[in-house]
Design a protein around this nucleic acid. Structure first.
Lengths: 219, 219
DNA sequence: AAAAATATTTAAGCTTACTTAAAAAATTAA
DNA sequence: TTAATTTTTTAAGTAAGCTTAAATATTTTT
């Protein structure tokens, strides 16, 4: 299957997992940077290949086969992220960009080899779960967005759900990384902002960031 | 530039380096598994991009720009080979196949990062020289084909110039690998065969193999 | 519930990288 | 050196993955 198809299926998968669950062609088109017409076109083709269910004007739904393909690509992406992160001193953003390309040119053999080399990790450097070779995610995600946390409670950062360079630069500067501890000092619910204490620094985050930083309650 | 273009330019480069110096479209077509017509077509396009000089019925000649592109791809290929060889226990043939795909999806940044990680190696696991970031090969190759060696002389294996699975399997089974020592016990010049002693085993090789196994005189 | 705005689909067209078939040139053999 | 063979080129055509423009639905607003 082509790169275009893999990315299309992956986009549907990712969009389906997100808050605003819209997997209509326009949304996928926006994600991929192609025209709406191209997305509709591709949707029809993928339906013929039994990768998605397509009905005019409806949401695009992955079939089992389509989901499997998406998870296979996601697996390769996250394994590359984990490997590049371990070996090299590159920014998370750079690592993401490289993985975005490499994921499509990686045999199952190589993916499995990378996985084994890394000790079959369950999470990538963003805290995102890595599907196993069968395309299953076996971990249970109990994390919540920073925007939904409670004042006075301490959390550990579990996921940074983004691929934006500015965001990652900000995180790197402020110690916001996978595994680190944050104390939520104040929720400004009216203004949708969250004040946290991290590395003895107080910072105030708006919803753009608190909705993509996920945490777990610290035990 | 596209994968097709990178592979085309690479094929001209490799063919130009070889014994039978034929870089006419038919030869490139054979190398790439495409039709002669497609190769002629591509040749014209690349001439417009100033990557090759093209004259009807003549050999295809890389311009400086084309050579630079070819060497950049070759560099990435060989760096991947070196990295995969170091990290994983895969066969040389598998490593070659993976590198063949990854080479086209590797930024210069990642290539340089891999190179640095490996200590800027000058050779890949086949003994092939790795061009530097400027696209220069700074090493001098003094090696000769096993078919041109002298009876009674001891050599070290410097290059295994192939991408054929059977060949690599044979090499792996018989200790024919980069750096190992061989004693040439007999040259059967009439039959174009070479008898060698390696790891205390005597083996007899025909020209198919002795022309692609390169060695240096052992000092 | 009609009007306005937005999204989706259809239609026509483009580029890339191929294909096969036939024509033209170059190479090899007789 | 002519004939036979092989190679290269030209021509016409295809599929993938896009585009823009226009037609048709759907959704939102009033």
């Amino acid at each position: 299957m082509s790169v275009a198809i893999e990315n299309f299926v992956k986009a549907i998968y990712k969009n389906g997992k997100r808050n605003q669950n819209d997997t209509k062609p326009g949304n996928i088109a926006k994600e991929l940077g192609i025209s709406n017409a191209a997305a509709t076109d591709m949707a029809k083709k993928l339906a013929l290949k039994n990768l998605i269910d397509y009905e005019k004007y409806q949401e695009l739904k992955l079939t089992d086969k389509g989901t499997k393909m998406a998870l296979n690509v996601v697996r390769k992406h996250r394994l590359w992220e984990a490997l590049l992160f371990k070996l090299f001193d590159l920014s998370l953003h750079d690592i993401h960009r490289e993985a975005e390309l490499l994921e499509h040119q990686t045999s199952d053999l190589l993916a499995n080899t990378i996985s084994e080399y890394l000790g079959n990790p369950k999470f990538d450097p963003h805290g995102d779960p890595i599907p196993n070779a069968k395309g299953e995610i076996t971990t249970i995600d109990t994390s919540i967005a920073l925007s939904n946390t409670q004042e006075g409670q301490t959390y550990t950062i579990s996921r940074l759900m983004s691929d934006d360079k500015e965001f990652f630069d900000f995180c790197a500067q402020n110690g916001l990384k996978y595994g680190n501890t944050v104390l939520v000092t104040k929720q400004f619910s009216k203004n949708k902002m969250t004040q946290i204490l991290i590395n003895n620094n107080t910072i105030l985050l708006n919803e753009d960031f608190t909705s993509i930083i996920y945490v777990n309650e610290k035990i």
